[in-house]
Amino acid sequence: MSRSRRCNRVAHFSLSLRTVKEEEVPQDDANMLQGKFRKLYYATDGSAHYKGVGSVGWEPENVVLEQAWEDIRERVAEAKEKVLAGEASPVLYHMERTLMTPDILAGHIGWPAFVVRLHLRPFFFGRLGRKTLEKYAYAFQISLEELTDITKIK
């Protein structure tokens, strides 16, 4: 298909999507903001000048945000299975749960990221001293028992 024809098809779709006007600022609530506040959009008022307008959300944004969280939930579930099967250490599960990466954890425990990657394996995790475990527990905002006892992962 030529480019101009593709453009036409798109143009045909884009009816009633104008969002510049004050009263047309989208209000698609998907409880993303949990009612804590409305976010500010800029839109034009009757005199065609700009002003701030509150919004509870816009559907496309809700969709992509929800999608990002779905990916995260999938990763957490995967990590949980691995830990319970003994293929990975609890660090993996808590890392995914708190949306961290080995690089972020490396900052918390004061070791390079490749060391953190080693700690994701049960063998190396089992050899960790209390001090390092405490640092991990602090980073994950849990107690030492919650970190080391994998039956607590539910």
Binding site: V10, F13, L17, E59, E61, V63
Partner: peptide
């Protein structure tokens, strides 16, 4: 503003694809 509207179109369709 007109160009920004077009960007919102982009987000709208991209949202539908997603």
């Amino acid at each position: 503003t007109a160009s920004g509207d077009r960007l919102r179109d982009f987000a709208y369709y991209a949202g539908r694809v997603c």
